[in-house]
């Protein structure tokens, strides 16, 4: 009984440390691109991703017509939220810890696609954007 409790406590401590179930470091850009592309039945396209990311859109909130409103056009540099807080670079080459936490990726795609486009991004669009940001 005591042994079981110890084992349980150890598992609990490890799970807490790892931030279980969705841990940072549970995925990679490459894995996510493959997953989204498979879901969408499309080939990821760097060009489509770039056009979507850099383009101006009208379907979303007027304050955020483009991804570049906050992330700027230089994805290797630091961006800024509208409230002035720094956003670490989006380009994988400039920020290797990008796209390694599946929950974080899902959360910010949901929020930011709704802010900029007024709707969630499709799996194909997510694959395209990640392909573009990984290519920089």
């Amino acid at each position: 009984m005591k042994g079981n409790f110890r084992k349980l406590a150890l598992v609990g401590a490890l799970a807490a440390l790892a931030g279980w179930p969705a841990a940072a470091g549970d995925t990679s850009a490459r894995q996510l691109i493959a997953q989204f592309a498979a879901q969408a039945h499309t080939q990821p396209s760097v060009a489509r991703g770039k056009a979507l990311f850099m383009g101006r859109h009208t379907g979303g909130k007027p304050e955020t017509p483009s991804c570049t409103t906050c992330h700027t056009q230089n994805l290797r540099a630091t961006g800024h939220t509208r409230a002035g807080k720094a956003i670490e670079p989006m380009a994988l080459s400039a920020n290797p810890s990008r796209f390694t936490d599946s929950a974080k990726v899902a959360k910010w795609f949901r929020r930011n696609c709704k802010s900029v486009l007024g709707r969630e991004c499709t799996a194909g669009e997510k694959a395209d954007i990640l392909a573009w940001l990984s290519s920089l």
Partner: peptide, 10 residues
């Protein structure tokens, strides 16, 4: 939060 001062912060 879906319209948090002009952004989706859900």
């Amino acid at each position: 939060l879906d319209n948090h001062f002009g952004e989706d912060a859900s």
